[in-house]
Design a binder for these strands. Structure first.
Lengths: 237, 237
DNA sequence: CGAGCAGTACTTGTATACAAGCATCTGTCG
DNA sequence: CGACAGATGCTTGTATACAAGTACTGCTCG
């Protein structure tokens, strides 16, 4: 949120690149990340790579074990549940703070977003971007767009679990319909209905996770304090 | 939350030290932080100091301007409001999740905490620690202790504003009474009353801030994107 | 053949040197 | 006296060398 200067620096680009790769599961949970290797592949020195890994470690997306190695953290069900609780609390509270007059420009943006969600051949990545923008847009309606940033930073584990889920059943249509339901309730100033619809929507996403975990247990952490083993993994391409 | 290994490392100690100094206003908002200077004063090289500052910058407690300098960020009223919204949403939602049977050990811990809050000659720092532990304890009652960690990491600006407020009027007794009121409602399984009391308590803290800002405007950021000036400030002692 | 031990190749943590850029001070010139 | 230009000293960003420690590998010895 708060990095002061937007000046383009190696660390910033590497950080955002690695973060996206982790969230998009291009760097799968458990993958070994060598500072030297990454630096060589990115054509920079260890310094910006290392500083990026430290930031990702603070977010919980990476685990750094001194003298052992750095690894993409496995999806931790406890952290997924924490993030679910957090986002649900914040998004529902945001609905309570909706002003009587909603910003027309924002409403148009949300309507356009919803239309795109229903496009016939929508890619998974596109849907995820639209989904994120939709939820953030709702919070901006009540003036809490910045709080969404904090939530977004804390829900890395939840996002990766959701991605695993959508990769499997690949039916964003249901979620798109739920989005429209929420939006209609908001426009209709029916806060109670909006809350119910939002809660149903968020829980539907969350409830998929146990099924996914049964299907791909190796991507989840059974013991979060366990140290992964070092493996030769093709990291870059 | 997520740093993998608890092995004692220079960066970890420096990070926690600096973080505490910022939150306790020993490093006042706007103070200039030179990596070289800090490194010399702490007897280490720039590396662990620099990495600590990067982490603090990601939390929003420090601003780093390349080729200009690093500064303790001024208290940003917008970020204070964001944190207030976040913590209120999370703590109220946590009350909704209280289980029918409350953990007796935790209840004892909270009772002991409340007793200490009413000790006659209670120092300000002690009260802050008790306050933090009390609110975290409440969230642990509903199994959301980890979510509190995320909130705690995001509310640095709010905490500093609160500290400024308590330094001025110095009456923790009111807050201690509110704490007990919340606790009694929780024990009595009166969720509605607990929510009301919690909301009143959190807002009482928050409403002090505008008054403080009028009193000490130089510690607040009027324009968050403005670059502070470099000054020779005695940082360490 | 098997167990143990030393060597080796890797890891991250830390220190240090250099690069690029901003701000201020000072000397010079109009 | 005032304004401008260059030197100087600071800042953070990056690259690199070394230190400390882990884990595996392969040899040696029983």
């Amino acid at each position: 949120m708060a990095q002061a200067n937007r000046r383009r620096t190696n660390r910033r680009t590497i950080y955002t690149t690695l973060r996206q790769m982790v969230l998009k599961l291009e760097l799968p949970p458990g993958a070994a990340l060598s500072e030297n290797e990454l630096a060589a592949q990115l054509g920079v020195s260890r310094t910006p790579v290392r500083e990026s890994l430290i930031l990702l470690a603070q977010e919980g997306l990476v685990q750094v074990f001194p003298q052992i190695g750095s690894f993409v953290s496995r999806v931790d069900p406890a952290q997924v549940a924490d993030a679910q609780f957090l986002r649900e609390a914040v998004e529902l509270a945001s609905l309570d703070d909706l002003p009587p007059e909603l910003d027309p420009a924002l409403l148009d943006e949300l309507r356009d977003n919803l239309d795109r969600q229903q496009r016939p051949r929508l890619g998974l990545e596109e849907f995820f971007e639209l989904d994120e923008a939709f939820h953030q847009g709702l919070m901006r309606l009540s003036g809490h767009g910045n709080a969404w940033t904090t939530v977004a930073a804390a829900k890395g584990h939840l996002d990766r679990a959701r991605r695993l889920g959508l990769v499997e059943n690949a039916s964003p249509a249901v979620f798109a319909a739920q989005h429209r339901e929420i939006f209609d309730a908001v426009v209709g100033a029916d806060v109670a209905l909006a809350r119910t619809a939002m809660r149903t929507h968020l829980r539907a996403v969350f409830n998929d996770i146990e099924r996914i975990r049964a299907h791909s247990p190796e991507l989840f952490a059974s013991d979060p304090s366990a140290v992964p083993v070092r493996r030769n993994v093709v990291v870059w391409e």
